[in-house]
Design a protein around this nucleic acid. Structure first.
Lengths: 126, 126
DNA sequence: TTATATTTGCAACCTAGTTGCATTAATAAT
DNA sequence: ATTATTAATGCAACTAGGTTGCAAATATAA
């Protein structure tokens, strides 16, 4: 099920992601949008936006799901091999436009790889 | 809180991990040990075994917590920079003894990095 | 063997995420 | 425009992984 209809709720989500510099956790999104839409709706729209290539998701170290806007991706090709950086101090999560090279693994077929780096972000390292 | 006392439950967990070739999810462990011990106990022992350096944990793509035996780690040094491989076909999760080099990221301090690779494992790729 | 401190079991709880279904709203057809 | 069709939403109830407080049990030290 891809994104088909442009509803107020969809627009609201997209606006948020256009403004946002960093990735956002679903928990955060649900809280931030609780006056505008139902929690279930948030989950469902995020799902659709991911399938249509507008967003990509990943699981943080805390086990929560995070979403970020796809920068170098379109409907056809999804380059989500970039690592995600989670600040241990302020909690911020960002997409890094660095390439992590995953080594070829003998006798195995690699489909996707997820790299999550934790540490101190630019603001917190000072 | 590190591991202090060698109880039956602790032995049971350690035995499982010594036999196991692959990583095990907590869900799996709880189910497998439900006749021997309480779910809470499983969680608490795993916690202690991780703090004491016997096991390391990571979050799978499904959001579940997985544990595996530390091979090249001791109490003092924890080398968990190795990637984890999750088979999309059979679900098996294994530790790979390959080194993934995380690039230096400008103005950021890297503390830990988690690499999760998904694809087809040796048995399923055939 | 007794004292002390850690472990365990249990039940209740927390919360992220899901599901079914009736209602509403967006697009397509007339 | 109006109606028909189909997707999107809200709501409430639910699932499941993980946590917590506390009393009872068990391992180690004395």
């Amino acid at each position: 099920m891809a994104i088909i209809r442009k509803t107020k709720s969809v627009e609201a989500l997209l606006t948020l992601f256009n403004k946002a510099e960093n990735a956002m956790s679903v928990v955060e999104l649900v809280k931030q949008l609780e006056d505008e839409m139902n929690k279930t709706t948030v989950y469902r729209i995020l799902e659709r936006l991911e399938e249509s290539g507008h967003l990509h998701s990943f699981i943080g170290k805390d086990g929560l799901t995070w979403y970020a806007k796809c920068k170098d991706c379109d409907e056809a090709h999804h380059h989500d091999a970039h690592p995600h950086f989670q600040c241990l101090n302020c909690g911020k999560v960002e997409c890094l436009s660095v390439d992590v090279s995953i080594p070829k693994i003998p006798n195995r077929e690699v489909v996707v790889s997820h790299v999550l780096i934790q540490g101190k972000c630019e603001s917190c390292v000072k």
